Amino acid sequence: MLQLLDTLHRWAGGIIGLVLALLGLTGTILLHKDAWIGLPHVEDVQRTDLTAIAAATEKIMALPGAPQGIIYARDSFGLHQIRLDAGAGLYTDQSGAIVTRWASQWERPELWLFDFHHHLFTGDTGEWVIGIAGLAGLFFILSGVILWWRTRKTFQFRLWPKRMSRPAILMHHRDLGIIAAPLLLLSVVTGTMMIFRPFAMIVVAPFGSVDEAEKAMEAPKYKGGPLAATPDYAAMLAEAHRRFPDAEFRILSLPRAAGEPIMLRLRQPAEWLPNGRTTLWFDAATGRVLGARDALVMPSAAQAFNKAYPLHAGKVGGLPYRVAMTLSGLALTLLGSFAVWTFWFRRPKRTARPAGKAALAAR
């Protein structure tokens, strides 16, 4: 049984290990993107007064190029990010003045890295591949722990293989894997939760009703009029502030089709999700509130699901937790890349049997 498990572990690692290694590397880089995006005003203190945010919103949404939405500045990143058509976009400071713009995501490393980490540059197809890789990663962790147990007496802690030989790399892979297993389990489970909803519901089931969670997380289907020529964004922000006075504005999104509402996401202090899940929907024609969702009164299983992304992306726990997730990402990079290398390029050579024994075996 263990021999079969070992064979499955090696073959699956050789096939999908490179995907996991690249996900680990890009995820590690993205953990620290707020620190390496070196643009003017990126370290500005986040403004929270309604008047200043409303004025900047009106200014930004009136810019040429038909802005589709705003991701507002946050405490660790002092710029607003604006989405335009066809992958274009721009950053502005918190007064609405343009800092930089781009015509496609390839001009901004944080954007194409994010696209690769979440979609492998292939949209929904890439998400499926990453989801399968996540389930495979879960298998690697569990099977690796089982396989390690029989060799536990030879355990040695090394950050790098003693030699670049196949036996030394396999020993390093085994022992590094057992050390990193708890953090890898957290990374893999939370990452897979965000892609495969059925898997996510299995994980959050102990926290409450799955049916109630799925119903609470469904996107409401509000219908309104066509987008007004000059929507009153200041009034919408004021209404959102009236309903949730302690919340910060996170994302403003215009409708993608006629009749769809304007969506405004907010983050309340108790929410872990950096962009929050508290949401208001406004009629695009009149600005009238069509509906609102308070993330803090969602079913407990839904609230557990909302914690998956901040746990995965190091958005809670400050620097210590971010360092821990960095170690997890680097470990996944080493484990995945060495698994592929030893499987395809350092496989043991078959020794030829003596001619006499071969002849006897053929009889």
Rank of each mutant, 00 (worst) to 15 (best):
P40D: 00
I132V: 11
T333A: 15
L266E: 04
G318Q: 04
F249V: 01
L2N: 10
A240E: 09
A292R: 09
R150Q: 14
L39V: 02
G225S: 06
L183M: 15
Y91T: 09
H119E: 05
K315L: 03
A285R: 02
V289W: 05
I262S: 06
G191D: 01
V210W: 08
I132H: 02
E260M: 07
L90V: 04
G137Q: 04
L31E: 03
L332Q: 06
L50C: 10
W281H: 02
A324T: 14
M298C: 04
L296W: 10
R158T: 14
G69C: 11
L113A: 05
I146H: 11
G291N: 05
F244S: 04
V19P: 08
T326K: 00
P167R: 15
A181M: 13
A292L: 10
G134R: 01
D93W: 02
G356R: 10
W102K: 02
L237A: 05
L120N: 00
L273C: 13
A270K: 13
Y72I: 10
L50T: 09
P161F: 08
L254N: 07
A235H: 10
L254I: 09
E214H: 00
I70P: 02
W344D: 13
W102G: 05
F157S: 13
R256T: 13
H241S: 14
L8Q: 04
R322I: 00
F114Y: 11
A304G: 04
F249M: 08
I71S: 14
Q81S: 15
Q81A: 13
L50S: 11
Y91Q: 00
L5R: 00
A302M: 06
R166K: 13
M298N: 05
P261F: 08
L170R: 15
R174W: 10
P182E: 08
I262A: 09
P245M: 07
L319R: 12
T48I: 07
R108D: 05
R174V: 06
G69F: 09
A352Q: 14
P198T: 04
K357L: 15
Q156P: 14
H173A: 13
A73N: 08
A35I: 04
E127V: 09
G259E: 07
I179W: 14
H173S: 12
Q3V: 11
Q46T: 09
D34F: 01
A324M: 12
L176V: 12
G131M: 03
A200S: 05
G225I: 05
T286I: 04
E248S: 14
A331P: 01
M61T: 11
Q303H: 00
A302V: 03
F140C: 07
D49L: 09
H117N: 05
A308M: 07
A355F: 12
A313T: 05
G144Y: 10
P255I: 01
A205N: 06
R10T: 08
S95A: 14
P161S: 02
L5Y: 03
